[in-house]
Design a protein around this nucleic acid. Structure first.
Ligand SMILES: [Zn+2]
Ligand SMILES: [Zn+2]
Ligand SMILES: [Zn+2]
Ligand SMILES: [Zn+2]
Lengths: 159, 159
DNA sequence: GGCAACTATGTTATATTGTAACATAACGAA
DNA sequence: TTCGTTATGTTACAATATAACATAGTTGCC
């Protein structure tokens, strides 16, 4: 497993442009519309590798001229989540842009307590292990929420 | 992995009495007080292997004569969670009694969409796999939320 | 272009979940 | 008993999320 991009310094401008481009391509393929609110919502989330609360997002949206009523942001988030472009961190009631909209499957989230950055990783082996352990307990897994909190490599262990 | 108790028919009266007894023992050992509200909250959660929302709990508590204001239930839950006697399902904003208060460590939750029952399982291999995969990505895991949704063995697959 | 059907957004109102802050009461050690 | 500590009652409010309906934009068809 290579180091998580979100936790390393990288050309983030390029990083977010690339993700946005991928999303646009997928939208074209699926024949769905990345309308201004939706696009703007995604762009705000893509600005950093951290998660934002719905109302923080809403405020930023309203600064871009959109109506600052909750349904606006929740609808945009609903669309983006349905399409897999955004994920919700259940533990924090916060939303984060998907970092691999094309390949994302059974994502696990690594959330740094110190810097708040969020890395999304697919951990196929661990996921399979989980699902099959559940299966041995007589359970058919349809969906998983996996959120690890801790410290990223750039943050000191004593923080 | 043997079948999860929560998903099988069993002597639940005994099951909950045993858990309550364990909790009482632990409280004695730790020199902490399982006061009436706390105990009642736990008892309500122990009635079934399903999770309850804070306000559902609060209503049941008030039926037992306690003050029906939110802080009452949230404080009881705070205590019970701190001690590991109750867990929160983040995905559902709901609370469930710990099924193994003595041994519980890094629990995973299997949540049946059909019958709402919740089984708590420690899956050491899967957990280790997760943590070490995260570690290879440069991340030190301090805490994990693992919640699988799906179908238990007693519920038909088409539900 | 004109119209109908569908999709998306604006807007009001309200539901649900969770805390802050301070008053009162119960408990436990000296 | 008295004092400090811990727990509970109570008021008020913050934060998160959805229902419901009105309006506007988009799309396909004639
Ligand atoms: Zn980046
Ligand atoms: Zn960090
Ligand atoms: Zn039981
Ligand atoms: Zn079931």
């Amino acid at each position: 497993m290579k180091k998580a991009l979100a936790f390393t310094s990288h050309d983030h401008k390029r990083c977010r442009r690339a993700t946005l481009a991928t999303v646009e391509k997928i939208c074209a393929e699926r024949n769905i519309r990345l309308t201004p609110v939706r696009r703007n919502t995604l762009e705000i989330l893509l600005e950093t590798h951290t998660a934002l609360g719905a109302y923080e997002l809403l405020e930023k949206l309203s600064q871009s001229g959109f109506c600052d009523k909750p349904p606006v942001v929740y609808r945009a988030l609903g669309f983006l989540m349905e399409q897999g472009f955004v994920h919700k961190l259940e533990r924090h009631n916060a939303f984060v842009a998907c970092s691999e909209p094309k390949k994302c499957k059974n994502p696990c989230f690594l959330i740094c307590r110190a810097c708040s950055r969020v890395a999304e990783q697919t951990m196929p082996a661990a996921h399979t292990e989980l699902v099959s352990a559940a299966n041995q307990a007589g359970f058919i897994t349809q969906n998983s929420v996996i959120e690890l909190s801790g410290l990223c490599a750039q943050c000191p262990s004593d923080s």
